[in-house]
Computed example of a mutant assay.
Amino acid sequence: METLKKIIKTIGAIIATIFFGITAIFLFDKHKDKKEETEKAEKAKKEKKDELEKKSADDIAADSPNPDTISTNIEREQEELRERIRDRLNKNIPGNGSSSNN
């Protein structure tokens, strides 16, 4: 009876070892795939960044799905900036005949 218990414990230990070994293999395999996926995404990101750095702003805007909207927004923002600068200059520069800086 004693030897039968030892045999059963040994078989149980072997089965448990095989189970944990297989589980570990699957876990490490998934981790490896995730690492490769991350490296692939980083490489694609770097390639896209390099490609965009080589293009001019006009080319990027032309390649977008709605270049007219982008151009309109850029022109509107430029005009708003010009107005703000013009207003600030008019505010800071005294007019002709002013005696404030004499």
Score class of each variant (00 low, 15 high):
N101C: 13
S99M: 05
N66P: 01
R88W: 05
I8H: 10
R86F: 05
K54Y: 02
T38P: 01
K35D: 09
S56F: 06
K49I: 14
E83W: 03
E77R: 14
K46A: 15
E39A: 07
G97D: 04
K55E: 06
K5E: 14
E47W: 01
N66R: 10
T38Y: 01
T38F: 00
G95A: 15
N90A: 10
I8Q: 13
G97F: 03
K34L: 09
T72R: 15
P94W: 07
I22Y: 12
A61S: 05
I18G: 03
G97P: 02
K30T: 05
K40M: 07
I15R: 06
D68N: 10
Q78M: 09
I60L: 12
E37N: 11
G21M: 04
L52V: 00
A13D: 09
K46P: 00
D59I: 04
N90R: 10
T69L: 12
G95L: 07
T10V: 00
N92K: 11
I74D: 01
D50N: 14
Q78R: 14
I93W: 01
K6Q: 13
A44I: 09
K55D: 02
A16T: 14
M1C: 03
I8A: 14
E75C: 00
K30S: 09
E37W: 03
A24N: 08
D68P: 00
I18F: 11
I14A: 14
E77F: 10
N102Y: 02
K46H: 06
A57D: 13
A16H: 03
K32Y: 08
A16E: 07
N92M: 14
D63P: 01
S71T: 14
R86H: 11
A57L: 11
S99P: 01
